[in-house]
Design a binder for these strands. Structure first.
Lengths: 226, 226
DNA sequence: CAGTATCCCTTATGATACTG
DNA sequence: CAGTATCATAAGGGATACTG
């Protein structure tokens, strides 16, 4: 457990819980709606299960999370009120931490995020498969499929075998930037960094199939004087 | 420096900088208006100067703080936008981390905070001295004086020798709770936990002499169902 | 006043393997 | 699926003394 700051300031008391590594990312996952251990885990893939377990228990002890008998982890009233904290951090990070290192790019995580943001109504009826190709990604994570249907969306890293409606090809960084809202689909496609292939009508509507990241629409800082 | 989370999520990128121990408390001090090293330091007395120095440099490197040639540390545009983060955390901490351990009580820090919140217009003209007595505090930090004048307010832990206008006596915890807004002056005085002695008119106006903590007026959670 | 220099030591955490 | 167990390493950070 974190050492106490020995301060009565509420910011310090809050940070005693929240400033430990990974804690706020776990909260972020719960705020995003994950409830099961392995569901949370997909959102923090670099975190060891031991540590995730520890963090979840800390959050339960702190009264931020309730663990249900069925194994679900649900935010308590206190936990739900952490949403503004997560939002403030995401907003700030979006505006002021623009540069992503290569190590920050993760196709599995990107697919996992995107699958959560599919707008069912914008996608054609029935089953629609979107293939993503990242020629620059490591072997084994170059090809991905999102299988979108009325039941929801599945992420596959092996060919599910269904007919592919659209294929998006480009550098992982380009799609990540679009997802984050650093640039638009139009921009990335126009610059030739993302190539969408498939029927024209689908190609045109593709940008509407995803709501993109929660923070994509945050206004970026304008170049300003002091 | 903190290890990367290897995530493109803006919350993760923000926390790479902000989740290290003490960092956000240093930001809090800068947001509160401290500019000089030793001024910040008074707000984080349990932090070693080495570590404070390190954190300030990290914040400078991250573009959150500008170090001026005259030695001042000023928030940059990015740094000023951390205010909402600090506020969200303070608000949450106020609502959900109510219990203070004895170790969280610190008379010097309390006096330092209170001296910043003096409402000059509410205090009588000229020099006004308020004495605070904490019989339960360790020897050497039982008696404090706030010397309030047009020039500002000084904190003394040894008798400055001036005439004392009011004396506030009580447990450190009681005054800390009033400062945080967990209870009112009226409540603490009514319960006999704080005793104010001095001229009646001054005693009556004392609650107006301080604005109290930034978070004192945050509404506390009402007992609620799930 | 405004920091640096050391030094030790806890402990957080990453990695990996394993279990009910 | 939902975690625990174990382990070794790095390093974060506390304490204290010292300097320009």
């Amino acid at each position: 457990m974190a050492t106490s700051y020995q301060q009565f300031c509420p910011v310090a008391k809050a940070m005693e819980l929240l400033d430990e590594r990974w804690t706020l990312l776990v909260v972020r996952e719960l705020v995003m709606g994950s409830e099961h251990f392995n569901e949370v885990r997909r959102g923090v893939p670099r975190m060891s299960p031991t540590l995730l377990s520890k963090r979840l228990h800390q959050l339960v002890r702190a009264g931020v999370v309730d663990r249900r008998p069925d194994g679900r982890y649900l935010l308590s009233a206190a936990g739900r009120e952490l949403r503004p904290v997560v939002e403030a951090l995401g907003l700030w990070g979006t505006r002021w931490i623009g540069e992503l290192g290569d190590a920050d790019l993760d196709p599995r995580l990107l697919m996992w995020d995107m699958h959560r943001s599919v707008v069912a109504d914008a996608v054609p009826q029935g089953r629609t498969v979107v293939r993503f190709r990242f020629p620059d990604a490591p072997t084994g994570s170059r090809d991905w499929w999102l299988v979108i249907s009325a039941d929801g969306t599945d992420v596959c890293d092996i060919d599910p075998g269904h007919e592919v409606a659209l294929t998006v090809t480009g550098r992982l960084r380009a799609l990540t930037e679009v997802w984050r809202g650093d640039r638009t689909w139009q921009d990335a496609v126009g610059a030739g960094e993302l190539v969408v292939s498939g029927p024209a009508d689908l190609r045109r509507s593709l940008p509407d199939w995803f709501t993109l990241s929660t923070f994509a629409r945050v206004p970026r800082p304008v170049a300003a004087g002091r």
